[in-house]
């Protein structure tokens, strides 16, 4: 008998007999619907409490803010999506106050060293955010691959305030995650951190040292 069958058979023929299936009432996870303003405030408070930064922007000026943020950090380059409107807009703008724009359009194997050692910052879109925990929802894809939000020391994420959900429970329901998940999905709540050395927080242990949210209102 295979191990699979052995295990399943042991579980199916349990000596204690059939187990009763309890009801699960998820209503405790449901929050009264917060107003957009409340969601923005909560999101900001939560993500800032874990060292994230939020910058309030409009469709018209987010690029100015981005340029400013990158310049103060002395970023030499910025990794952008190729097709997403964020990437398109940045390339089309042809601004000279932005650093060199890089596109992740080759398999990682061909430029891993460069990505790990030479890229200073990245910008990605989000699939919304979660106010209660101050989280960003990302579904990496071929346009915005998984490592974009992980390897560069600064990750900038664009979040539309209108796409802020109250809770994770609400977000997954609204986006119907049960119907199918992408190869990789993420909730990101702040920059990479550790407290493994005497419970002292340190940022950027493996992933970005900084997480900057451009909140488009």
């Amino acid at each position: 008998m295979s191990s699979r069958e052995t295990i399943l058979q042991r579980l199916r023929n349990r000596t204690g007999g059939e187990l009763t299936v309890p009801e699960c009432d998820f209503s405790v996870l449901v929050r009264d619907d917060w107003s957009t303003k409340e969601r923005i405030e909560r999101f900001e408070k939560m993500i800032e409490s874990v060292h994230g930064e939020v910058h309030h922007c409009t469709e018209d000026m987010w690029m100015d803010r981005l340029a400013e943020l990158l310049n103060t950090r002395g970023a030499r380059n910025l990794l952008i999506p190729k097709q997403h409107e964020i990437g398109q807009a940045l390339r089309d703008a042809g601004r000279d106050d932005l650093p060199e724009l890089l596109i992740y359009d080759e398999p990682i194997e061909s430029w891993q060293g460069h990505l790990f050692n030479e890229v200073d910052a990245s910008i990605t879109s989000t699939r919304g955010g979660i106010a209660e925990t101050g989280s960003l929802i990302l579904w990496p894809n071929d346009d915005e691959p998984r490592l974009m939000s992980l390897v560069p020391p600064v990750h900038i994420a664009v979040l539309k305030a209108s796409e802020l959900y109250t809770t994770f429970h609400e977000a997954m329901k609204a986006q119907n995650w049960a119907a199918g998940m992408p190869t990789n999905a993420l909730l990101i709540s702040g920059p990479s951190k550790t407290a493994d050395i005497e419970q002292t927080l340190a940022y950027g242990v493996h992933g970005p040292k900084e997480l900057i949210v451009l909140m488009i209102e």
Binding site: P107, I108, S135, D142, T183, A185, S189, P191, K193
Partner: peptide, 23 residues
């Protein structure tokens, strides 16, 4: 750890697809 959520909640549902560039 008394965190409302951890920095990363990573959900993996498959290996790299043909068109994907990492994973």
């Amino acid at each position: 750890t008394g965190q409302h959520i951890t920095t990363y909640f990573n959900m993996i549902s498959g290996p790299r697809k043909a068109e994907e560039l990492d994973g």
